[in-house]
């Protein structure tokens, strides 16, 4: 494992912990898109189908369990927690799951490396992860009231994707036969979705003003 991959995973972990901590301590999920969180839970569930079958490393298994546990906990908090669920911006978070789920499923059935259930589900999770942030970005733009933690959450997620691209570049030059178009293209698209957010995030940071996205 190279430094970019490790840094990417740690940023990913930090993003999830920031969000979980925000929800748990402030008992509020305002500004957080339940749609995006549900999509991430599905991403992890479909990607880690073989978690107890295929063993890669202790590190991988632990991280997978953390991502599964945290994503389902966040969904549980927003949907079921007595206090937290009252702060959910339901009327603003209107993005339809199906608009993302269906194209990803069709694409995974058509473009995959191997037509088996496990592989198609894995490919589906890659495509879905690429676009799962969209409901969250739409919500941020709508509410215009972005608290620091939600901003940091999205920033860390974007940073994780950017670091994974560096990881692939590193692996491409250091490992033989390391060419994976599906993951790369989906990953690049996913990172590009954050470009706009990054721009405004750095602007607000540079000028030390509150982060606000243009309508």
């Amino acid at each position: 494992m190279n430094i970019f991959r490790l840094a990417g995973d740690m940023t990913h972990l930090a993003s999830v912990l920031v969000l979980l901590l925000k929800i748990h301590t402030i008992k509020s999920c305002s500004g957080v898109s339940l749609k995006t969180q549900e999509l991430y839970a599905l991403v992890f569930a479909t990607r880690y189908l073989d978690i107890f079958v295929t063993y890669v490393s202790f590190y991988n298994t632990v991280m997978k369990l953390i991502f599964l546990g945290s994503s389902f906990s966040i969904v549980w908090y927003i949907r079921r927690h007595r206090v937290v669920r009252r702060s959910y911006d339901k009327d603003q978070d209107t993005f339809r799951h199906l608009f993302l789920l269906l194209p990803c499923l069709v694409l995974a059935l058509v473009i995959n490396e191997k037509f088996t259930f496990k592989e198609v589900m894995w490919t589906f999770s890659i495509y879905l992860e690429a676009v799962a942030i969209l409901p969250q970005l739409v919500l941020l733009q709508r509410t215009r009231n972005i608290d620091n933690l939600t901003g940091q959450y999205v920033f860390l997620l974007g940073a994780y994707r950017a670091l994974y691209i560096l990881n692939w570049i590193y692996r491409y030059f250091t490992e033989e036969h390391y060419v994976h178009w599906i993951t790369w293209i989906a990953g690049i698209i996913q990172t590009l979705l954050y470009a706009d957010f990054f721009y405004y995030y750095f602007q607000s940071w540079k000028n030390s003003v509150k982060l606000e996205l243009p309508a």
Binding site: V56, S57, K64, E119
Partner: peptide
């Protein structure tokens, strides 16, 4: 198998 080797990422 080639389809498996990139499954080592999260």
């Amino acid at each position: 198998s080639p389809a498996q080797e990139y499954h080592d990422e999260l």
